[in-house]
């Protein structure tokens, strides 16, 4: 069956749960990916993903298409919930950065997923020390494969501002690697 988001959204905003179920099926993996990379563990990623969709279901009656895609609206909910989660977490305890479990990635052999290289671990740790908006940018760009314009719609920034932020983020990461006297080998 063809996925017609506009029509589905119209029904969902009138309280049709089946239509919301279709939206859920379409976006659950993407939201889970985003939350997983922002929180670093599957348990909290699952909990927060559920809360994102519960909140979306509660407020979808107020959703109006103002040129911002529905996905941007969902990511903003996810972003707010993750921000609250980090705030609450920082009051209690620090997140062990080594705990990011290895989940199967798409299009890879299962054996390859079992091994995450030392380089990737170091890089993940560095990414998670970046400010939240830079982490968002990298996740949306690499995990979600979004364009600068799409990222801009989610982050409430212009395409040019996203491009500039991306460049600054790469330079910051490169400098961090240099500070630690580390070099990423070419593939």
């Amino acid at each position: 069956m063809e996925y017609n988001e506009e029509e589905i959204l119209q029904h969902a905003s009138q309280g049709d749960r089946d239509s919301f179920g279709q939206l859920y099926a379409h976006y659950v993996e993407r939201i889970f990916n985003y939350v997983y990379y922002r929180t670093g563990n599957t348990h909290d990623a699952e909990d927060l993903t559920a809360r994102v969709f519960q909140r979306a279901m509660k407020h979808i009656v107020n959703y109006t298409d103002r040129g911002v895609p529905f996905s941007a609206w969902l990511y903003r909910i996810a972003h707010n919930l993750v921000a609250n989660w980090h705030r609450d977490r920082s009051r209690k305890q620090e997140i062990p950065l080594d705990d990011l479990p290895i989940l199967p990635t798409k299009g890879d052999h299962p054996e390859r997923n079992l091994v995450r290289s030392q380089e990737q671990d170091v890089l993940l740790k560095m990414i998670r020390t970046l400010p939240a908006e830079r982490q968002n940018l990298l996740i949306l760009k690499f995990v979600e494969n979004m364009s600068n314009a799409e990222i801009g719609a989610i982050m409430g920034r212009s395409e040019g501002a996203v491009k500039s932020l991306y460049h600054r983020t790469l330079l910051a990461l490169r400098d961090q690697l240099e500070d630690q006297n580390l070099n990423l080998e070419g593939e």
């Binding site: 889970f32 990916n33 559920a50 969709f53 519960q54 990737q120 890089l123 995990v143 593939e187």
Partner: peptide, 27 residues
């Protein structure tokens, strides 16, 4: 190189099917 490594590190993951079903039920 950094971009290539970021692409290799930040890869989309597939949550287990049970997890997606469990989430659906929770919602």
């Amino acid at each position: 190189f950094l971009e290539a490594h970021l692409a290799g590190t930040l890869r989309p993951i597939s949550p287990p099917k049970e997890l997606v079903q469990r989430l659906g039920a929770r919602i």
